[in-house]
């Protein structure tokens, strides 16, 4: 289903130059080679994001689209329809690894799955990755650290022994990871990862993860409150006009996790 050819005219092809090394023929060490320009969303496209009716692995994507002011259609598929209603089989050709979320561009001219691949695709296309190889590497580095913590959070959320393990998660895993993330922001001097006012996709991922962690309860809220820089990122992103409007809208779904989770569970 990958119809990259149909979009070929939208992009220059920087890597098709005669030099095998992009670094060697660019005055800034190949930083700009990161992007195929013009940016994807400078021309109008129809976007549809397909996922379960929860925040889960799709919320970072929704937030990045909202912050970028990009219109998109949300297709929320119920757990029953996906697992037992045949939708998973119907969509098998749309996603190589049998999973959602799935992003459909222009009604299927280009289809992409894997949440972090979708996040980076939109971030690159809108400049939320900083727009050059060094800025993108700094975003990727923080985003991978955030994703590591989110993976541990999700494992905990669906763990049958959630009640016995949540304390260790908050007091050890969360404290350790946030100490590291706080240090990244401390070293930066700016509010967000790349600048004082320009938000990056990694900052937005941090916002959503903090929001999901706050839902763990008072103990988690007390830990989060100890990290000033993380708290500042969280509060300032929540107050950004497009994000604030989204959070107050019905587009923001309530449930964080699937029905079997011990926190933020989907209720039919």
């Amino acid at each position: 289903m990958f119809a990259a050819q149909a979009f070929a005219s939208l992009f220059s092809s920087p890597a098709k130059t005669s030099s095998p090394s992009l670094a060697s023929d660019h005055p800034t060490g190949g930083q700009a080679a990161h992007h195929a320009k013009p940016l994807f969303f400078t021309t109008p496209h129809h976007l549809k994001l397909t996922y379960f009716p929860i925040r889960g692995l799709a919320e970072d994507i929704r937030l990045i689209l909202e912050e970028s002011g990009i219109a998109y259609e949300s297709e929320n598929i119920s757990f029953h329809d996906w697992h037992e209603g045949g939708i998973k089989q119907q969509r098998a050709a749309d996603n190589p690894f049998g999973q959602m979320p799935i992003l459909y561009v222009n009604k299927g001219e280009f289809i992409l799955s894997q949440s972090k691949a979708i996040i980076r695709f939109i971030a690159r296309s809108t400049g939320l990755d900083g727009g050059d190889a060094y800025s993108a590497a700094r975003c990727d580095q923080l985003a991978e650290g955030i994703a590591d913590l989110r993976r541990q959070y999700a494992t905990l959320a669906y763990d049958k022994e959630f009640a016995a393990k949540v304390g260790d998660f908050i007091n050890k895993t969360l404290v350790n990871s946030f100490t590291t993330i706080e240090r990244v922001y401390d070293q930066n001097k700016t509010r967000y990862l790349l600048s004082q006012d320009r938000v990056s996709y990694a900052d937005i991922m941090l916002f959503e993860l903090v929001d999901q962690i706050l839902a763990l309860g008072q103990d988690a809220r007390s830990v989060v409150a100890k990290f000033d820089r993380i708290g500042e990122v969280y509060k300032s992103i929540a107050a950004r006009p497009r994000i604030a409007a989204y959070l107050a809208s019905s587009r923001r779904v309530v449930a964080i996790n699937g029905a079997s989770a011990s926190v933020g569970a989907f209720k039919a």
Binding site: F2, A36, F110, L112, R124
Partner: peptide, 9 residues
């Protein structure tokens, strides 16, 4: 990748 779409893939 050579294009934004290839990078996404």
């Amino acid at each position: 990748g050579k294009t934004a779409l290839e990078n996404a893939e």
